[in-house]
């Protein structure tokens, strides 16, 4: 009897597994043929010189030439494109994470006009990374357009104030750097704010009530409840922000990869450098993930 039941259970499990595979089968086919195969092909392409002809692609093996040609051609390439591509956007990430958590907490409070404020803060989700933002970067924030209004965003104004306040040069530099990027940072935090807001609403109100009865201050509540409870979201936000930063169309490295392909038609070079760049970016993401995930606290409420 027991044997029979066990057998039956096994059958049901197998059936469940089969149904599961059936549900994901379309994606699995797509993943293998439209993602994994191109990914493997790009590894192959990286070592080839390619030309598109009417009959098909013509390949010639060139070794690691595709990876190093640009560094040989242009000795300033690393400093002008690779380093800013990796660093400028990464530095932004922690600021973006902190700012979006802060905004999410503010937007989660009850006040008049909250709906309007939320609608405004999610606007970047609708327009972000699109062509309009790129055009705005090209035109709108142009210095030749500098009116009294854009002056607010230009760092000179803030730098003057800081210099007059007698702060050391390093602090001035940090502040001007952030203020230069404030437009970009807020515009890239739309999704992050959304993620945080949904996470904040998942924290049971009873925990705050209990803490309040125990006499905890708002500051303690934040660190002991909000910060701990929200940590899984912080991990997601961190990784998302990093990915977004690395693949941003305004990222000099991504720009270069596309120009190499679209304007100069260098297929092999653009693939090789893209691959190398993504590997480095991937490593940075993995490191950030590993460090952050140590401090993540999961509540098993299922």
């Amino acid at each position: 009897m027991a044997k029979k039941r066990k057998h039956k259970g096994g059958q049901m499990q197998r059936r469940e597994a089969r149904t599961g595979y059936a549900f994901i089968s379309i994606w699995l086919i797509g993943f293998i043929f439209l993602f994994l195969r191109p990914l493997c092909m790009s590894f192959y392409y990286a070592f080839q010189e390619m030309k598109v002809t009417q009959e098909g692609m013509v390949y010639t093996y060139v070794g690691i030439k595709n990876f190093i040609y640009k560094f040989q051609e242009d000795i300033y390439f690393f400093g002008s494109t690779v380093w800013p591509g990796l660093s400028k956007f990464v530095i932004r990430t922690p600021i973006c994470v902190i700012l979006s958590l802060f905004i999410a907490i503010v937007l989660n409070q009850k006040f008049h006009g909250r709906t309007v404020a939320r609608a405004v803060f999610f606007l970047p989700v609708i327009i972000t990374s699109g062509i309009v933002v790129q055009l705005l970067r090209e035109y709108g924030m142009d210095t030749s357009m500098e009116t009294e209004n854009t002056y607010l965003f230009a760092s000179n104004g803030i730098a003057e104030i800081l210099a007059n306040a007698g702060l050391p040069q390093i602090i001035q530099d940090i502040f001007t750097d952030i203020s230069d990027q404030i437009f970009d940072i807020i515009w890239m935090s739309g999704i992050q704010i959304l993620l945080y807001l949904s996470g904040l609403q998942g924290i049971p109100a009873s925990e705050y009530e209990a803490a309040k009865i125990e006499g905890a201050t708002a500051w303690e509540c934040f660190w002991k409840i909000t910060w701990v409870r929200i940590s899984p979201i912080t991990l997601v936000v961190l990784v998302y922000t990093l990915i977004d930063a690395f693949t941003d169309v305004a990222n000099p490295m991504i720009k270069f990869i596309f120009e190499e392909y679209q304007l100069r038609g260098n297929l092999g070079g653009s693939t090789a450098l893209g691959l190398a760049y993504c590997l480095v970016a991937f490593l940075i993401i993995i490191i950030a993930y590993a460090i952050a995930s140590k401090h993540v606290f999961y509540v098993n409420d299922n």
């Binding site: 439209l34 993602f35 195969r37 191109p38 990914l39 092909m41 790009s42 392409y45 990784v239 990915i243 690395f246 693949t247 991504i254 990869i257 596309f258 392909y261 297929l267 653009s270 693939t271 893209g274 691959l275 993504c278 991937f282 993401i285």
Partner: peptide, 11 residues
């Protein structure tokens, strides 16, 4: 995590 940019040429 892997951006479309990296595989868009083979695609």
């Amino acid at each position: 995590i892997i951006p479309t940019q990296i595989i868009f040429l083979p695609t």
